[in-house]
């Protein structure tokens, strides 16, 4: 078996009375694009800071490529970070920012300039070396931060919500670029985000964080199609939970079930209910339907046909049996 790039074992971190990280065991493989997904305050950024070495864990260990680094300072760890606010040095030019890591490691001037220029070219900023970070747009700064980290050829790149400050268009474009860069350089990426779409589109595997713990680890498909808990089902996508009486009536037995909105059709048979909300969203329309059995379901339909259900309409919802997810259990009910 190969040594994992990152191995966290029994990791805990408390800030005063608050336990931000409450026991995490995790292995991240070499070359993996790994996302840590969770709401703010779920501990994902703290875990990232523990891996980078900015904070020391209260308990547990951090190992990088099989070597324990729990007590090492950040500058003795072979990881680099892309910060949420980029943290570019304002008094240095772009090229000086990029070659900073090489300079402090005493790489000869000529060589480090060359490598910095290559790194800038790799993020398509070849002509921007002489500028100050201040004079660049958010997307450009983001790429400078990326170049500054990658030029050191770290074993692991940590990214702390790096796309958070960008507008939607740029964000989607950067998602594709990041994924390409990661494939090209073959470095392990650990990507922290609270955006489920981002995590699902980019990652090889996703860890969903809940209150300082990992609620589920898996491929995007596993996490989306087979959520391990109601929390995961709700955080990754819209959950449409069926519990208690509603589960008995609609599914036919006890348990907690979920049906994803895009798997439901409004038809002439099935579970009856009343449309309480119609939300038009361009390519799709979202219907909120209150089932008579006592659950609220969100249905997403593509806008292919005219004559949609209206607010207040009586409708019936159907779905295929295989799309009913039993949460915390096997897939089909």
């Amino acid at each position: 078996m190969r040594t994992p790039a990152i191995h966290l074992s029994g990791l805990r971190k408390s800030f005063g009375a608050v336990e931000a990280v409450a026991g995490i065991d995790l292995e991240i493989d070499d070359g993996e694009f790994f996302s840590m997904l969770g709401p703010s305050g779920s501990g994902k950024t703290t875990v990232l800071r523990l891996i980078a070495g900015f904070d020391r864990p209260t308990a547990g260990t951090v190992s990088l490529s099989g070597r324990e680094v729990t007590k090492l300072p950040p500058y003795e760890r072979d990881v680099n970070t892309v910060f949420q606010d980029y943290a570019l040095f304002p008094h240095l030019s772009v090229i000086e920012n990029v070659e900073y890591g090489l300079k402090v490691r005493k790489v000869p001037r000529k060589q480090r300039r060359e490598r910095a220029e290559q790194a800038l070219a790799a993020v398509r900023l070849a002509d921007f070396g002489a500028r100050r970070p201040r004079a660049m747009s958010g997307g450009q700064r983001q790429r400078v931060a990326l170049a500054r980290a990658l030029v050191n050829r770290p074993k692991v790149l940590l990214l702390d919500e790096p796309l958070g400050a960008l507008d939607l268009k740029l964000r989607e474009q950067m998602q594709v670029e990041l994924k390409q860069i990661q494939r090209d350089v073959g470095i392990t990426f650990v990507f922290v985000t609270h955006d489920q779409d981002e995590a699902l589109t980019m990652s090889d595997r996703v860890a969903v964080f809940e209150a300082g713990r990992i609620a589920q680890v898996g491929t995007p498909e596993e996490v989306y199609e087979r959520p391990a808990s109601p929390f995961v089902a709700g955080f990754v996508g819209t959950s449409n939970l069926l519990t208690g009486a509603a589960a008995r009536t609609v599914v036919g037995r006890d348990g907690t079930f979920s049906v994803r909105p895009e798997k439901i059709t409004i038809g002439a048979e099935g579970a009856p209910g009343t449309v309480s909300e119609v939300i038009y969203a361009g390519p799709v329309t979202r219907f909120v339907v209150d089932l008579d059995a006592g659950a609220r379901m969100v249905v997403v339909e593509q806008n292919r046909r005219a004559g949609k259900a209206q607010r207040g309409d009586r409708v019936q919802l159907t779905w295929q049996q295989e799309h009913v997810i039993e949460i915390g259990g096997d897939r089909a009910a």
Partner: peptide, 25 residues
């Protein structure tokens, strides 16, 4: 402290961080 953390992250010792980042700042 962001810039100093970034500097340490890039491999600078505390003395280097003070010299290249904190003091110029």
């Amino acid at each position: 402290v962001n810039l100093e953390e970034a500097s340490a992250d890039l491999g600078a010792s505390p003395a280097q961080t003070f010299r290249y980042i904190t003091f110029p700042m």
